[in-house]
Write a protein that binds this DNA or RNA. Sequence first.
DNA 1: GGTTTCCTCCTAAACGTTTAGGTTTTACCG
DNA 2: CGGTAAAACCTAAACGTTTAGGAGGAAACC
Lengths: 363, 363
Amino acid sequence: MRKSTLRDVSRATGLSIFTVSKALNGGEGVSELSREQVLKAARELGYIPNRAAQELRKASRDSIAVVTASTSNSYYLDLMAGIQQMLQPSDWTVVVGDVAVNGAYDPALEDRMIRRLIESRTAGVISTLRLSFDNTQLLERWGVPLVFVDSSPPEDKPSLPSVTTDNYNASLMVGEHLAGHGYKRWLFLVYPSKWTSRFDRERGIRDAARFHGAHVDVIESENDPASASAAFADYLAAQGRLPDVLITGNTPLLLGAMTLVRQRAIRIPDDMALIGFDEFAWAPLIDPPVTVLNERSEEIGRVAARTLAAIIASQTEAEARGQPANPQYLPQYRQQVPAALVVRRSCGCGGGPHPFVAKETSR
Amino acid sequence: MRKSTLRDVSRATGLSIFTVSKALNGGEGVSELSREQVLKAARELGYIPNRAAQELRKASRDSIAVVTASTSNSYYLDLMAGIQQMLQPSDWTVVVGDVAVNGAYDPALEDRMIRRLIESRTAGVISTLRLSFDNTQLLERWGVPLVFVDSSPPEDKPSLPSVTTDNYNASLMVGEHLAGHGYKRWLFLVYPSKWTSRFDRERGIRDAARFHGAHVDVIESENDPASASAAFADYLAAQGRLPDVLITGNTPLLLGAMTLVRQRAIRIPDDMALIGFDEFAWAPLIDPPVTVLNERSEEIGRVAARTLAAIIASQTEAEARGQPANPQYLPQYRQQVPAALVVRRSCGCGGGPHPFVAKETSR
DNA sequence: GGTTTCCTCCTAAACGTTTAGGTTTTACCG
DNA sequence: CGGTAAAACCTAAACGTTTAGGAGGAAACC
């Protein structure tokens, strides 16, 4: 049994390739009889269209890419869920492109990925990290709309859309909570600035510390647990004592820090309090349950997907009117999603079996 | 700035399309001067080839698909890592196809996915779940090699390759450990048989129970935490008391069960012991640290990828000799990877700060 | 009977590459 | 300078679709 083409179906039915194509795609101008014959023959021959040929002919763009690094971060799964939810119905194909090898971001991989996406004439891109200037340039040149999530565009392209947590206010809120506990010496363990949410988070923490008369040390680690563990250990070795509270920039860093905490038998929150960015499924089950800033990645995904879809729609509409097909980026496409603090035990809040309070950042 | 084609580059250089193509692809028979000119022009024009056209012409098959459901299960990330590791160097593109919507497996989605994969002339498929007979049939008809991981082929196609954990022996080992603790009443909370690893796991647990004179109840839950929680609650309501030990079939089910455990303030391992299938990053940090059967998904991924690559290679070789291009499935393609028991505290093993013992299933 | 209208179906030209086979140019040699 | 071989390049045909434009015939109208 061999791979069959439209021509095979055409031969089998005695109808022309044109008619067969029309019949299969539900077009007008085909008699019911012919259509039935075609469908029957196609089924029997196991005909499945060749997508490459379709795309070539239709210049079709029906897939959307999500660019990500360090997929192991669980927020990414929620993000994807949000995106899928929004895009599935209008049947876009969502593909994910990982630009990390063995968990570490690789610029060469970023270049390769963007090229690939253009090669396959992707309709739009959602990126979880700041892309290089050249790559945003390239996408623009090829008229591929781009939306950043949880990250901001390169400085030279400030008008590009982005959907982020309200990181600054969220961090202020975290700081306020810590100050409420009376902690004076904070440690912020954070990932590299390739993930640009770092800037606002760090700024918020620093401002909160200044405002509340606390001192904050910031240490940077690669975006994986092992590096985080090492960075934390180095800090402790240099300082000789624990901070009042450790703030971890995201879940992989939290995992790394917790591993060291366990090894050194550090008691939380007695010896040191702990608070983390990003909610995750196991947080309530850890010993002790971890207080966390929930950044609502699913909602972020939905907003980003909706935005991208809108841009593409207006683009194809302009194209239909024969106008230049460059994506139009409106100012209102820069959006922030509020975050909520999920208070558990690690921050020092005592509590019954389920200490669970949620506050929201004001918008 | 508009999208440029080979023809544009050709016009810009005064060379023919043929020469331009050769030059870009590093082919012979192009003078150094011409090549330079072509590369320069291509760069200036921002030329990027159209993949659809290339694929159509070359009938190229350079991507491999991983079919999965319920991505949220973290073992899948390790699996992917193993596959990528093996396939990245030979520059296959690995795409993942999720056949679950909102975490729930959907047969219609499976059909759609397989069709899509054939449409895009995917070179090979790795599936984490048993596919329908029709779909395996379809893939076979189109000459697309198929390897199952952590799951087995439909009964009608027993010769298809599969790479699984040595689930039966692993389960025996789990049972033996439980018997060693003297537990007599076991509860096995397990996912639906769509994921075929269930069969061997259940059989192993049952055999071990029989051998050691224990009683085992098996309850089935959908493959997500909420369902697991509900199923466990139902069981408790019906029984009126806790089992000696709860065995969870995978990580999402463990999460669901643990959530209920926390709600009901069940003390582990005092009130009930706990042991789970599949290792995951947070297991050592849970309260108490969870004893787990580590199924080595990364290794499974590597083996599966290697097997698939071998099948494809022999297939293309046969094709080159003008022979039938159906994939050849050899008996040795059915492989089992040993698993290891990671003993922590939840099973009742007391222990210092790091009770960490690893045993392997004998092969 | 001639004209118009409507259906159904067809031919042929694209889409942007790769490649088989051929032709021109260049380089070299006697 | 003629002849030959290699190098450089070209023309044209494919790959499997979709689609613009039109042919053919039957029914409907005058």
